[in-house]
């Protein structure tokens, strides 16, 4: 009985986090027409991390509550999401946009370091553990919020199926086929930031899921229809995070593996595979 109470929230967390990150990645890859885009590489995670660091480790106590972490992670995600969206209007090259995302990451990483050097040891430890990523820390009350946000994100994405499908042949064409480009861009960034920000607040900054899963789904399903890509990404993302958690559980007697390390261990080779295949 006790095992059920502990396991089920964790399983739901894994399913939602995996689905949310994978969908965010898919949306961003289509928006920027770049298979290497994703919430982590383009700095949305970094924005969340930075704002969470500011709220937990500095004296700025505006967000000093459980809900405060979610609020600051979302604010960070939205701020950096808009930043990368604006950059994408001026920077036409796909590679340059990725570099800007990586620089956003370095920049917020540096700021976080500064904050950490001022922080008290307890807050520092809590932040470091959070940044490892984990599915264990979602409380029952937060779970409802998570379910609500997760489902909202998935449903909103499904409503974007048609514009997403048309975006793959270029914005000019999509526009003349009836897509409201400005609104679609903003909506995509809004959904990606909402999903990524929430996951980051509750489970820490989880890397590579958003980047790798949509590529695997495209490889398996061999379609460019976003109805299937969205559902497939949600499914595969969920399965992947559950598998990662299983791995952590299997090794838990010997070593406490950080979730972030595992996603990176499988994600980084996939990125290399994509680069070898496409460039």
């Amino acid at each position: 009985m006790l095992a059920h109470v502990f396991r089920i929230p964790k399983a739901i967390t894994g399913v939602l986090a995996g689905a949310a990150l994978a969908i965010s990645g898919l949306l961003m890859q289509t928006l920027f027409q770049n298979p290497l885009a994703g919430p982590y590489v383009l700095g949305i995670n970094s924005g969340s991390s930075l704002f969470v660091a500011l709220s937990t480790m500095t004296g700025i106590g505006v967000f000093a509550s459980d809900f405060g972490i979610i609020t600051s992670a979302l604010l960070g995600a939205f701020a950096f999401g808009l930043l990368i969206l604006i950059s994408s209007i001026y920077v036409r090259s796909k590679i340059s946009l990725l570099l800007i995302g990586i620089m956003l990451g370095s920049f917020s990483g540096a700021l976080i370091n500064v904050v950490q050097s001022y922080s008290n040891p307890d807050a520092l430890k809590a932040f470091t553990l959070w940044s490892f990523g984990s599915l264990n820390n979602v409380a029952f009350e937060q779970l409802w919020w998570f379910i609500l946000v997760g489902l909202t994100g998935i449903i909103l994405s499904l409503f974007l199926t048609k514009p997403l499908n048309l975006l793959v042949i270029g914005e000019e064409n999509a526009s003349l086929l009836g897509v409201n480009i400005k609104r679609t861009r903003l909506l995509i960034i809004f959904i990606a930031a909402l999903l990524t920000g929430t996951v980051t607040a509750l489970c820490g900054p989880i890397a590579f899921v958003g980047l790798a899963i949509p590529n695997i789904v495209k490889y398996i399903f061999k379609t460019s229809n976003h109805l299937f890509l969205i559902l497939g990404s949600a499914l595969m993302g969920a399965v992947l995070l559950l598998l990662c958690d299983l791995l952590i559980f299997a090794f838990s007697d010997i070593v406490q593996l950080p979730l972030n390390a595992i996603t990176a261990l499988f994600g980084a080779p996939i990125v290399v595979w994509i680069i070898l295949k496409k460039y």
Partner: peptide
């Protein structure tokens, strides 16, 4: 137009029908 992976010629032409299709295309 560089082409899109997994987008067939038929599907590409079908995209031109977007003004006539429903919300899921």
């Amino acid at each position: 137009f560089y082409g899109v992976e997994h987008l067939s010629v038929r599907e590409l032409i079908g995209m031109g029908r977007a003004p006539f299709t429903n919300v899921l295309g």
